[in-house]
Write a protein that binds this DNA or RNA. Structure first.
Length: 268
DNA sequence: CTAATCACCTGAAGGC
DNA sequence: TGCCTTCAGGTGATTA
């Protein structure tokens, strides 16, 4: 479900809702969802910081960390009433004082919350965040030029650049007029740099729109995003391309449903 | 290094 | 209505 803009939206809301709160207890309803990597007490530890790296949420506690990955259908909801109207798919509750709590719902059970001493235990192998201030067009171009993967697979692999998933990969490649099956290293330097800027602008405007809700994504308050009405290719197969009028098509590239305009997007 | 396939899970949608 | 197949915003392991 969530890619960088959805996770960023959640992180910003978590800062508003749970910063400074002390953990009273954690209730686990699906054991695999909670990976306790260290034998330390989390009770009494306070939420000191909340950050994001790619699609991972890093919650800094007094001594240790909670790392959250929502995978396909994970959701984090905050409330201060002590219960939810519908608790189907509820996997974990992090309870604070005075009945407030952060709940992790996850229909497909792929998501995880890890309790660790060091975030790099979980995200050490993850590449730079797509919005990392240390990443520039030159570094991005060099990363793309060093890969023989097709560009769709390159963007989806989190080890080169992290945070990009299926929706924003397709949208960025469309806006850049690059065919998703293009070999990364064959894309001209000029186009690689253009892709860097287009990718960032696609991600930033999705953040401004509070993320994209296709089916499951909701923010911490249960609200849907607004970015889905601005998609040009994702989920648009059969409609006409906004640039040339050709029919947007969908087929499997890099093992994923991939949407693009067969006429606008050039293959390298 | 890259590519393909399976695995992890549940539920919605489409074909018959 | 019911059964069967396919697909879904992710990623890690395994096997060519």
């Amino acid at each position: 479900m969530p890619e960088l803009p959805e996770v960023e939206t959640i992180v910003r809301e978590l800062r508003q809702t749970i910063s400074g709160k002390a953990i009273a207890s954690i209730e686990i309803f699906w054991h695999k969802s909670f990976q306790e990597m260290i034998d330390e007490p989390y009770e009494g530890q306070t939420i000191e910081s909340i950050h994001r790296h790619g699609k991972y949420i890093i919650i800094g506690l007094t001594q240790n960390y909670l790392i959250v990955h929502l995978r396909m259908t994970g959701q984090l909801f905050f409330n201060d009433r002590g219960h939810f109207p519908n608790e189907q798919h509820l996997r974990i509750k992090i309870k604070f004082d005075n009945f407030s709590e952060l709940a992790f719902f996850d229909q497909r059970k792929f998501g995880r919350i890890y309790f660790v001493a060091d975030p790099s235990d979980i995200i050490g192998h993850v590449g730079p965040d797509a919005l990392d201030s240390g990443l520039d067009e030159k570094k991005f171009s060099r990363l793309v030029g060093g890969s023989k993967m097709n560009i769709k697979a390159f963007l989806l692999s989190q080890k080169h650049i992290s945070g990009v998933g299926n929706i924003y990969a397709d949208e960025s490649l469309f806006r850049c007029k690059i065919h998703p099956a293009s070999t990364s290293e064959k894309i001209p330097v000029r186009k690689r740099k253009e892709l860097f800027h287009v990718l960032r602008s696609v991600l930033l405007s999705a953040i401004n729109n509070m993320g994209t809700t296709i089916s499951d994504y909701r923010d911490v308050n249960g609200n849907e995003g607004k970015n889905q009405s601005f998609l040009e290719v994702y989920g648009q197969s059969g409609t006409s391309c906004s640039e040339c009028g050709s029919i947007i098509i969908k087929y499997k590239i890099a093992g994923r449903g991939t949407h693009f305009c067969p006429d606008c997007q050039k293959i390298y």
